[in-house]
Each structure stands twice: as C-alpha cells, then as structure tokens.
C-alpha cells in the first residue's frame, strides 16, 4: 500500500535562504503524525509546501502515490488533502452554518452552479446540520464567524477543514492559545472527527503531541532529525539535545 503522504528530498529556498533543507517524510494511511521542532525550524513552511501555498524549490511531494507538488491549493484539495491554519482563517462575514455549507459545496459536486438554490438541497443542508452537531456548535448556527469566541472559531476552523471529506488532514497548531479545559475538549473533538483519516499536525503542546500521535517527526533547521514513535522520541538523545532539553 502506498503512503498517504510522501515527501522526498523536499527543499525550499526564499531567495538564497534555505528554509527547508531536504525533508524526507512518509505518513502511512490512518496514521496520526505530529511534527515538532523549535520556532523557526520551518514547520509552517513545510505545511505551506504540502498544501500548495508554496512550490518546492526541489524534491517531490506525493499524495497516495501521485505527485501534488506544483499544483494549486484547490487542485490539491480536490485530490483529498485539506488543512487548517494557525491563525484562524474563516469566512468571517458568513454564519457558522454557511461556513460549513460552503466547505461542503465542492465535495458534493455543486461546482460553480448558478441553477441550484442552496436552501433546497436537502442532502447538503442535512450534512451541514450534522457537522454543526458533531462540532457542538448547533446553538451558534446563525452567528457570524467573526462574533464567535476564540475556542469556537478554532473548532469551526477544524470543522471546515474536515467537512469537505478530505482523507489527509493537516492541522497547524490546532490548540494554540487555548486554556487547559478548552485544549482537552478540542483534542477530544479532533480525535472523534478524524477517525479513519490520516492526520499530520504541527503542535507546540507536548502533552497533546504525546497523547494523540502515533508517530512524531522532529524538524530542526529545515531537516528532520528523527522520526519515530512517541516513546522512542522521548528517549532519543539527539532530540533531547536539539529540542526537548532546551526550551522545556
């Protein structure tokens, strides 16, 4: 079986400055894989390369064995990869329900139709209502996204990322800026909604990482120095020196 996501010798340079310096990474289908590393290691850049915001300077990225590097974000999304953002990135003027419905439109095959009325598409609306319930946002159905609390916005961000049905999900610091209770709630929600999906996440919170991840890769200065199970990573001397020992 081919890897859900595979990066081979990926480089990214901005001008002369190398940010990603030869990353090899393989994520198996159904795996929950976390990327950790100190600030400035290139984690966000790596996500932007995988999701098509940036094009690699060198190397290849493949989704289910098919090359996606060089494609536009919407093309990559249609091939089954979706991502959330570190800074909340929603349709701010639209209600919670509209946000979720919009993230379902392409997946349900509506494309750019101007001959369907969205209000009359029963399956579409029921799917959006189900997502509202699953995310625990039913009470906030008709509130514009911009008026939600921070934790609610983060939840909706993850919901719109996953609702479209992609099977490879990239989460960029899903619990950043949350208190402990909110964090636990969000992690439980993520575990629930990403069952059977391949998950690649960047996270600073070590508690979250060691609790959720099947495998962890450590990114330091644009290179992966270790990629293993949480226990092995915890025991890895190089990792402790490069990362765990210094800041925490």
């Amino acid at each position: 079986m081919s890897d859900a996501l595979k990066l081979a010798n990926v480089h990214k340079r901005f001008g002369e400055t190398p940010i990603i310096r030869g990353v090899d990474l393989a994520v198996a289908p159904g795996e929950r894989h976390a990327i950790i590393g100190p600030n400035g290691a290139g984690k966000s850049t790596l996500f932007n390369l995988i999701s098509g915001r940036y094009t690699p300077s060198e190397g290849e990225i493949a989704l289910h064995g098919k090359r996606i590097s060089g494609l536009a974000p919407h093309q990559i999304n249609r091939r089954g990869l979706s991502r959330s953002f570190q800074i909340t990135n929603l349709f701010q003027n639209m209600t919670v329900f509209e946000n979720l419905r919009c993230s379902l439109l392409w997946a349900q095959g509506y494309k750019y139709s101007f001959w369907h009325l969205v209000g009359r598409q029963t399956a579409l609306n029921e799917a959006a209502e189900q997502w509202l319930e699953r995310l625990g946002l039913s009470a906030r159905r008709d509130v514009p996204a911009s008026l939600l609390t921070y934790a609610e916005q983060r939840t909706l961000e993850i919901g719109t990322t996953i609702a479209g049905g992609a099977d490879v999900i990239l989460l960029d610091e899903p619990t950043a800026g949350m208190g402990l209770a909110e964090r636990d709630h969000t992690m439980a929600m993520i575990s629930e909604v990403t069952q059977d999906k391949t998950l690649l996440m960047v996270e600073h919170d070590m508690g979250v990482v060691f609790e959720l991840a099947d495998r962890i890769s450590v990114l330091v200065y644009g290179q992966i120095i270790a990629s293993d199970t949480p226990e092995a990573i915890r025991a890895n001397a190089a990792v402790q020196e490069a990362y765990l020992g210094e800041a925490h």
């Binding site: 974000p73 979706s82 991502r83 929603l90 701010q92 919009c102 139709s113 101007f114 209000g119 719109t160």
Partner: peptide
Amino acid sequence: LLTKTPLGRISNAVRDNPERAQFVGYN
C-alpha cells in the same frame, strides 16, 4: 436568487477569504 446558489455563496466566500475558498476546493 443568484445569491442563493452555490456560485453566489462561493462568491461571498471568495470575498471574505480567497485563501480558505481555495482550501475548500474552489478556483
């Protein structure tokens, strides 16, 4: 009525946040 179609909604989405619109599959 056009505002109530998928095209109308996606136009709003592109207005609010073109990047997110791309990441839900729209050009």
